[in-house]
């Protein structure tokens, strides 16, 4: 199909993008375009104008400073997947990024576009929630930070205001004794997640000191699995504990589950347990 007519503005800075957003009603930010252009082609989205932020240098690249990895919003999935910095500082991100779409999609799709699109079947939102990432945005009223847990509000709905531009995602760097892992059931057609789980565990003295688990694909936004986390904390992460804790994910998924041709809500809930278990098993192994 063919997109509807649209006006086009190219921003050369975040400030200019914010201005353009304010000046143009019914405008959409265009980065890699891999969420927006398919919608425009099917005419499910027909914005009046596009603000192309794809060339803004200041929101590209990955930098590690101390306990934080700062990823520019324009960083592509393939850059995430192949970044040595991320591989050592926050390995769950490359692991998940490598499972997005396909190589050509990863070459264009960006972390900012992905998070801002907030598709519940997307991979990075789940990872961001499990990591407790911070999303940086700039708007007419200046800069602000939003924690991932508050960022994803509903189906395709985030805490970003209409006039704001996401600039970066700050990820906590992996700590000694930590292991992290992402597990995903691929939809055979779309390559989105039917169900996915992201897990970060911290092991001290053979016991789980802290755990953070998020589940994607089941509800309209990534779900934090606090029951699972509670069942892990304080225990040795053996198969039995992990299995028991994973089963507790049912308590964390009390809302309406996504239900479609490929997978019912009931199945997604059941698979949440399986994929939480798989993610936790890998994370625990990696925690050593």
């Amino acid at each position: 199909m063919y997109p509807a007519n649209v006006a086009y503005h190219r921003a050369s800075s975040v400030a200019e993008a914010v201005e353009l957003l304010a000046e143009n009603e019914d405008s959409k930010l265009l980065a890699g375009g891999h969420s927006l252009i398919p919608l425009m082609r099917l005419r499910l989205a027909s914005p009046a104008s596009l603000i192309d932020v794809g060339r803004i240098a200041e929101i590209q690249g990955i930098s590690v400073c101390g306990d934080c990895v700062c990823v520019g919003a324009l960083t592509t999935h393939s850059t995430l997947a192949s970044s040595c910095d991320l591989q050592s500082a926050c390995p769950i991100v490359p692991e998940a990024a490598a499972l997005i779409g396909d190589p050509a999609v990863r070459n264009r799709g960006t972390i900012g576009g992905n998070l801002a699109h907030a598709d519940p079947a997307s991979d990075l939102p789940t990872v961001a929630v499990a990591l407790g990432a911070t999303i940086k945005a700039t708007g007419p009223n200046g800069k602000r930070s939003i924690c991932a847990g508050d960022f994803f509000q509903d189906l395709m709905t985030t805490a970003l205001d209409d006039g704001e531009v996401m600039t970066a995602v700050c990820l906590p760097a992996i700590q000694a004794g930590q292991g992290m892992a992402y597990a995903k059931m691929l939809h055979p057609a779309s390559r989105y997640a039917v169900v996915s789980a992201a897990a970060v565990v911290t092991v001290e003295d053979g016991r789980c000191a802290a755990a953070s688990v998020a589940v994607g694909g089941v509800e309209t936004a990534p779900a934090k699995a606090s029951s699972v986390e509670a069942a892990l904390t304080g225990n040795a992460l053996d198969a039995g504990v992990i299995a028991c804790a994973s089963a507790a994910v049912a308590d964390d998924l009390a809302g309406d589950a996504i239900d479609d041709v490929f997978a019912s809500g009931e199945y997604r809930r059941a698979m949440a347990e399986v994929y939480v278990r798989r993610a936790l098993t890998s994370a625990a192994e990696r925690a050593g």
Binding site: Y8, R10, L30, G33, H34, I37, P38, R41, L50, D52, G54, P103, A104, V105, N107, R108
Partner: peptide, 13 residues
Amino acid sequence: GVAVKSCTMLAVQ
């Protein structure tokens, strides 16, 4: 030098 799906990119990009 990067492989892309040219149906998912605008010419202006």
